[in-house]
Design a protein around this nucleic acid. Structure first.
Length: 497
RNA sequence: GACCCAGUAGCUCAGUCGGUAGAGCAACGGCCUUUUAAGCCGGCGGUCGCAGGUUCGAUUCCUGCCUGGGUCACCA
């Protein structure tokens, strides 16, 4: 407490003095529990059934109007705010003077009292018993408001993200976003459970990482005396479970990617991956589309405002092949180009390219620059080049350059990635070895050869469809938040100095 | 990583064409028994993000740095 400036120190000292006074008067400022009978919301919604009745309620004092021998204050519980009326002649001089008068904004109290309405028709509780449940000694931000509109709102983003507890107290809408996030995840889980999927957990700490193209975080295990990686994906483990005989599995997994952060990326984020044996990419596409639509419907967000876009999740999502989308833009058959021709084309769009970029990187770049930003309404992009899809199976009946894969784009952002999974062990080994070569040539996001995984596939993997969904992004969409930081309770921040 | 914007009291902000700062709220003392951004009176509270430079003098001008936001780049 030594780093505090005088003004803050003064406030804290005054509160510590009050805390001592309260103790001296025989009140316990930090009791162990409180039995409350109702929430603010229940009483506000059904006033008629509560009028004149005695109830108990608990919450934080967020507004106070002391008027000598009687006072009003609001307490806020998880469900909302409700007004209290306390009169010295009702509760007695001792409680009023020695406890109530020592209370501050931010204190948590339990109240017993009679439900009534003031002359301005505000539902209130006439306090009969007041119990201090937790004494606040550090001042909260301003909580003044009128007609639901905050004055001097607590809206400095840095302050809010670093002190989410204050954000949640001061900005009730924030709590709503995270309540909705919890509902979305429950809905996704229920959807898959009802379809017979089994929820599993796979290692976060891995001695070899894989399943995606990304740079990992590294850590160290003392007893094993070895470096470990935090997972960048759970794909290869879930496929081992398919090989082991689980026909439908899923995991809601935190992944960790050692990359930049912006409004769509956080170093740790939540993915939902699910795999279904004997299914292909078209089967899991249908499942994915239905799951997203059902989830959106359940929370009443089939139509969302996402940044400057109005997104319609109620209509069937479009399906377009990558080649078709590129042809619309370039008037060229991009898939038949070699690396050099592709590089020339990318450069012709004034896109920054480095000479060492390989075919896959060039392809990704071009698509990301000229097509992705225009994919506003939900669109499944189908049929990717093999070079950038080392875990996907070749498209049936086509030349060998294309794989069965989709990515789902909404609002110009990627939401899902799925394949008909490659289950030919010889081909899979070849593809990972090609990735290893790219690594050697300096592509530090190319995938690594996971021998244990390859051997697992050699035992025989059924035909399988698999999908990964970005849960945070789905929550962003369905809560209409344009920054990932606003759907993460504790987004990654640099440490304070 | 590049550029732009911001950082002043516990909170939200104003301000200083260079002379070491102001408001509202909160907090403190007083008055007040139906208020609701309660009100009235009084007095507190500041390393003006950090470090240098220019200057008689810097919170203000310049440079660097830190943190956050935004745009772009990188990255799924």
């Amino acid at each position: 407490m030594s780093t505090e400036h005088k003004s803050l120190k003064q406030i804290i000292n005054f509160r510590l003095e009050k805390l001592a006074d309260i103790r001296e008067s025989g009140f316990n400022p930090y009791p162990h529990n409180y039995n409350k009978t109702h929430t603010a919301e229940e009483i506000l919604i059904s006033y008629e059934t509560f009028e004149g009745k005695s109830i108990s309620i608990a919450g934080r004092i967020v507004a106070m109007r002391k008027m000598g021998k009687a006072s009003f204050f609001h307490i806020q519980d998880e469900t909302g705010k409700i007004q209290m009326y306390i009169k010295r002649d009702n509760v007695g001089t001792e409680l009023y003077n020695n406890l109530f008068k020592k209370l501050d904004l931010g204190d948590i109290v339990g109240i017993e009292g009679i439900v009534f309405k003031t002359k301005t028709e505000e539902t209130s509780i006439n306090v009969e018993q007041l119990t201090l449940l937790s004494k606040n000694i550090r001042p909260l931000p301003n909580l003044k408001e009128k007609d639901g509109e905050a004055f001097n709102a607590f809206d400095d983003k840095e302050h809010r993200y670093r002190n989410r507890h204050l954000d949640l107290i001061a900005n009730p809408d924030v709590k709503l976003v995270f309540q909705t996030r919890a509902r979305i995840i429950t809905l996704l889980r229920n959807y898959l459970d009802n379809k017979g999927f089994v929820e599993v957990e796979t290692p976060v700490l891995q001695s070899i990482y894989g399943g995606a193209s990304a740079r990992p975080f590294t850590t160290y295990h003392n007893t094993l005396d070895q470096n470990l990686f935090l997972r960048i994906a759970d794909e290869l483990y879930l496929k081992r479970l398919i090989i082991g005989g689980f026909d439908k599995v899923y995991e809601i997994a935190k992944n960790f990617r050692n990359e930049g952060m912006d409004k769509n990326h956080n170093p740790e984020y939540t993915s939902l991956e699910y795999y279904q044996a004997y299914a292909d990419v078209h089967d899991v596409l249908k499942l994915t589309e239905r799951m997203i639509r059902e989830t959106a419907k359940a929370i009443g967000k089939l139509h969302v405002k996402f940044g400057k876009y109005e997104i319609d999740l109620s209509k069937p999502f479009e399906q377009k092949s990558m080649a078709e989308l590129l042809k619309d833009k370039t008037k060229k058959d991009v898939f038949s180009m070699n690396r050099e021709e592709l590089q020339k084309l990318v450069k012709s769009y004034n896109i920054d390219v480095e000479d060492k970029m390989n075919y896959g990187q060039l392809f990704d770049k071009l698509f990301g620059e000229i097509v992705e930003p225009d994919l506003i309404q939900p669109t499944f992009v189908m049929d990717y080049p093999k070079e950038i899809s080392p875990l996907a199976k070749e498209k049936r009946g086509e030349d060998s350059k294309i794989v069965e894969r989709f990515e789902l784009f909404i609002g110009g952002m990627e939401f899902a990635n799925a394949f008909t999974e490659l289950n030919d062990p010889i081909e899979q080994r070849k593809r990972l070895e090609e990735q290893a070569k790219l690594r050697e040539l300096g592509d530090d996001e190319a995938q690594v050869v996971d021998e244990n995984f390859l051997q697992a596939v050699e035992y025989g993997m059924p035909p399988t469809g698999g999908v990964g969904i970005g849960v945070d992004r789905l929550v962003m969409l369905l809560t209409e938040q344009t920054s990932i930081k606003d759907v993460l309770l504790f987004p990654a921040m640099r440490p304070e100095v």
